[in-house]
Design a protein around this nucleic acid. Structure first.
Ligand SMILES: [Zn+2]
Ligand SMILES: [Zn+2]
Ligand SMILES: [Zn+2]
Ligand SMILES: [Zn+2]
Lengths: 131, 131
DNA sequence: GTTTGACTCTATACCTACTGTAGAGTCTAG
DNA sequence: CTAGACTCTACAGTAGGTATAGAGTCAAAC
């Protein structure tokens, strides 16, 4: 049984964020000392690692909650988990395509400008076109 | 001279967003009718198109403000504009690399799961590893 | 001439996913 | 016993908007 500071050290997740995860329902409320200090167990540590890993992969809180309820459901199937992660992959892929599109547009816009000392700049012209 | 609803129609930017741009200093405060209604001119229309175009390219408000002050500075140079947009490109490129990295990790994780009816799932195991 | 409907105004709350701070209480080492 | 580290709650702030509520205004139809 560890206090929140120790949990923070072990997981690398800030104390404030751990409390926040409890508040938004991603982490079950732990027991408390008489003083009110939170006391976490092994299950909490595992859950925080789960949150840390899914967060790193860009999962939204909503999607993480869906995954967690699968995790907690003894009738879950490997298939359902896979489908959920595939949706995440699709979302990320679309984001990547969007950003790649922006990247290409920026490259094209930059190519139009010779970077001289004049105040006229084709980039600025592009930026106030009506679209 | 047009009212905010007409401006919204011409630019495709919602009325609330136009007011918001004024509030955060991206759009100069327009004149007003006696009733308090905002009245925009051609320069405002151009500015909103500028905001629309740069926003579409993922520029932050801070960066847009920097660009706008270049735009308003008669001593600006094409080079300075180019440098600013190049920084934006670099930022976007880094975001794209990050998201591409996530995408690849997700693909690898998904590949580990056969998607069967059992409750064990290598994806879930991956997600609560300590990292 | 008035009434209806569309439009506009301000102010405030909400969104995601946190982070930071104020002010008060608690624990532990010297 | 006290100093310093830790923890608590509650609230404000971040970016970049979106969405209400409640009040006032304008133009056209009746
Ligand atoms: Zn699986
Ligand atoms: Zn121009
Ligand atoms: Zn240029
Ligand atoms: Zn496990």
């Amino acid at each position: 049984m560890i206090k929140i500071g120790e949990m923070s050290k072990r997981t690398g997740i800030p104390v404030t964020t751990i409390r926040y995860y409890e508040k938004v329902g991603l982490l079950p409320a732990p027991g408390r000392l008489e003083s009110g200090y939170r006391l976490y167990n092994r299950a909490h540590l595992e859950r925080i690692n789960f949150l840390k890993n899914t967060r790193k992969l860009g999962f939204s809180q909503q999607r993480i909650k869906a995954l967690v309820s699968l995790l907690e459901n003894p009738n879950r199937t490997s298939e359902k988990v896979k489908i959920s992660v595939q949706s995440q992959l699709e979302e990320i892929r679309e984001k990547r395509l969007l950003i790649q599109n922006i990247e290409n547009q920026l490259k094209q816009i930059i190519a139009k400008c010779d970077g001289g000392e004049k105040s006229e700049c084709p980039i600025l012209e592009t930026f106030h076109e009506e679209t």
